[in-house]
């Protein structure tokens, strides 16, 4: 184990960590923005939108993230009309391709999480809100959605961790994320596992931090669902 080479190249890994965090959180953010209206549309069975979202979720949950990334990065670039369009400004860059793939993928999973949380809202909560004389809008925004968001937290925490791990796919389209840094280190010094081991350690630390943060959030927002201690 050549720890010295890892330490000597800490900058490589620092830049890689930054790249991974950037992609992961931006993808989660965009994914969430897609998922919130999609999840609501799905749970309401809104005509047309519900079917559209259904198709989207099927497509992105039905195929591996790696394949989606390849299709967006190598696939779209094969068409001349894509390369001649305004979209090429973004699709040209591997960073945007990765972000688009990750965001759409994360959005499809988050849609299902939100749909599930909305559909399992206890009837009593809605009935109580109606009894208080809240308007339909108020019920949605003051009761239904906040309640569903709280109960979606544990599953969404999983999705965040999956996205972090899934972001390692960025390294196959030339991006220097954490895994990319590990591969570069391996290639430069002909090492077998030092780069991968360092990458694994970094992903693990990030995962632990995220899991810890979600524990805290759950402790705060799901307090009312815990059994009361005597």
């Amino acid at each position: 184990m050549r720890v010295d080479l890892v330490l000597e190249n800490w900058r490589l890994f620092a830049a890689g960590t930054w790249m991974t965090l950037q992609l992961t959180f931006l993808a989660l953010l965009i994914g969430f923005v897609i998922a919130l209206p999609s999840g609501i549309a799905r749970s309401r069975k809104t005509p047309f939108w519900s079917q559209l979202v259904n198709a989207y979720v099927y497509l992105f949950r039905g195929t591996p993230l790696l394949v989606q990334t390849f299709l967006i990065y190598y696939g779209l670039s094969q068409f001349e009309w894509v390369r001649d369009s305004w979209a090429w400004t973004f699709l040209r860059s591997p960073w945007w391709c990765a972000l688009i793939a990750f965001a759409l993928n994360s959005g499809s999973y988050a849609t299902e999480i939100i749909r599930g949380a909305i559909e399992t809202t206890p009837r009593g909560e809605i009935e109580a809100a109606n009894a208080l004389g809240l308007s339909k809008r108020q019920v949605d925004f003051l009761v239904l959605i906040p309640s569903a968001m709280r109960r979606a937290l544990p599953q969404y925490g999983n999705e965040v961790v999956f996205m972090l791990h899934g972001s390692a796919i960025a390294s196959v389209i030339t991006l220097q994320d954490i895994l990319g840094a590990g591969r570069t280190l391996n290639a430069r010094y002909y090492l077998a596992y030092e780069g991968f081991l360092t990458a694994a350690a970094l992903y693990m630390v990030l995962t632990f931090v995220l899991v810890f943060l979600f524990r805290q959030l759950e402790g705060h927002y799901l307090k009312h669902l815990r059994p009361r201690s005597a």
């Binding site: 670039s77 390369r83 030339t174």
Partner: peptide, 18 residues
């Protein structure tokens, strides 16, 4: 410098104009 796992991938990106 953009680094690829294989030369084939580099050629794909040359033809796509990246």
């Amino acid at each position: 410098l953009t680094l690829y796992g294989s030369q084939d991938e580099a050629i794909l990106d040359l033809t796509s104009g990246r």
